[in-house]
Design a protein around this nucleic acid. Structure first.
Length: 424
RNA sequence: GGAGAGCUGGCCGAGUGGUCGAAGGCACUUCCCUGCUAAGGAAGCAUACGGGCUUAAAUCUGUAUCGAGGGUUCGAAUCCCUCGCUCUCCGCCA
């Protein structure tokens, strides 16, 4: 959520910045709402002040045993007017709030301008794609004989669900373990186990609601509604919701390995083969809660934390700075890590690291006590370190052998009982 | 699932219709005193939003907030209703 003060004081500039990312802000509507809000709020508060004053007088007069009928008469008509004003004020504030909740974050000045992913800017490219001396297969064809079973996944649950067996399942687990161990032991994140179902408040806090409800899976239980997490960014970031943490506690660095559930509404027909795009996938997530002055430093570090995984797995990748038109709702700046997929002959997103500055913190009321002892909004960052399913895809494709087997990446051998090759 | 208890400021905890944003204590900040650590004294110490002043801050002022929402009342932390959460006992259960 944007700071409403910024909109009040500097509306034109905010509108211009939002326009850069393709968002049309209804400034006229906002101005009209604000104007009425101001009038109604001032009037309401004046009436409330009058009522409080009079009531106080009644109390004092009664204590002294004086006659109160004169004062009572004075306050008689106040109630109805006040009630009407209060109701209207609530309505206006809700409208303004709803409006703000649907406005995306402002891009950082360093973000390249553009409309779509074609305008993203490559920052660096690491590793050299392997040259194959045989006809390569995509991950689905490589994995099928080794235990990657899309048909059974579809039977159990439908499209975009996959069953893994045997060494493929174990490789998948090894990847997650390796990532989690790296983030905790080498990069200083605290390992968390979090709920997979959350309430609406949590999703409003991180920005998935109210705007993107259709992307989520939800469950009705008795009278309550819970949502399956689309990423553990939601649970990890919400740990500081409604909290004021001491200055010394920052930065807070959290990580978790969880499944992620996404309805993938609007991506029908995209990536239908294989496990690039699933309704359920595992991810090791990194979240940092930091001092506002440190958030861009933290962003670069977190990209490095994700890159280290790819480097350890010896997977070629590139780092891309997302353009204004391709960034997510809550981000001021985002780097994507794209891993090389030889069968697609291209780089595909495997991690996304974003700084949200105070956008989520304002929704979450997540604050710290600053140097002067005053509460101030924190900055929040999140990033995948990494998406486990897509990493499995990358390993299958990049480590495939002519005989149909898959070589186990060296760093994983300890997690795989020293297995060297996965064979049918 | 059954029965009961509770939810007040950073923490503990008083407060059952009126001058309560809320006693008292702890913690914290500043100052005083005391020749060390300790002890004693004074003051300060919630958040959000609106308005005035201001380049801005400080400050002043108003409103709201005692789990949440609604109601009764001139007036609600206090009374009524609904919901949420926590805890205890019983049952069930990985």
């Amino acid at each position: 959520m944007l700071d409403i003060q910024a909109l009040r004081n500097d509306l034109d500039s905010v509108v211009a910045q939002l326009h850069k990312r393709g968002f049309a802000f209804d400034a006229a509507k906002f101005t009209a709402l604000e104007q009425e809000r101001k009038t109604v709020q001032t009037r309401t508060q004046d009436l409330q002040a009058k009522r409080n004053n009079t009531s106080k007088q009644i109390g004092m007069a009664k204590a002294k045993g004086e006659d109160i009928s004169a004062i009572m008469a004075e306050v008689a008509g106040l109630g109805d007017q006040l009630k009407a004003d209060e109701a209207r004020l609530t309505e206006l504030q809700k409208e303004l709030q709803d409006m703000l909740l649907n406005v995306p974050n402002l891009p950082h000045e360093s973000v390249p301008q553009g409309k779509s992913e074609e305008d993203n800017v490559e920052v660096r490219r690491i590793g050299t794609p392997r040259v194959f001396d045989f006809e390569i297969k995509d991950h689905a064809d490589v994995g099928a004989p080794l235990g990657l079973d899309f048909d059974t996944g579809a039977k159990l649950s439908g499209a975009r669900f996959t069953l893994m067996r045997g060494h493929i399942a174990k490789l998948h687990r090894a990847l997650a373990q390796f990532m989690l161990d790296t983030q905790t032991e080498k990069h200083g994140y605290t390992e968390c186990y979090t709920p997979y179902m959350v309430n609406a408040e949590s999703l409003i806090g991180t920005g998935q609601l109210p705007k993107f409800e259709e992307d989520l899976f939800s469950l009705n239980h008795n009278d309550s509604k819970l949502y399956l997490i689309p990423t553990s960014e939601v649970t990890l970031t919400n740990t500081v919701r409604d909290e004021i943490v001491p200055l010394e506690a920052l930065p807070i660095k959290l990580t978790a390995h969880t499944p992620c559930f996404r309805s993938e509404a609007g991506s029908y027909g995209r990536d239908t083969k294989g496990m690039i795009r699933q309704h359920q996938f595992d991810k090791v997530e990194m979240v940092q809660i930091v001092h506002p002055e440190k958030s861009y430093e933290a962003l670069e570090q977190m990209v490095g934390h994700a890159e280290n995984i790819l480097q350890a797995l010896e997977l070629p990748y590139r780092v891309v700075s997302l353009c204004t038109g391709d960034m997510g709702f809550g981000a001021t700046k985002t780097y994507d890590l794209e891993v090389w997929l030889p069968a697609q002959n291209t780089y595909r997103e495997i991690s996304s690291v974003s700084n949200c500055e105070a956008f989520q913190a304002r929704r979450l009321q997540a604050r710290f006590r600053n140097e002067n002892g005053k509460p101030e909004l924190v900055h929040t960052l999140n990033g995948s370190g990494l998406a486990v399913g897509r990493t499995l895809v990358a390993v299958l494709e990049n480590y495939q052998q002519a005989d149909g087997s898959v070589k186990v990446p060296q760093v994983l051998s300890a997690y795989m009982n020293n297995l060297e090759y996965i064979k049918a």
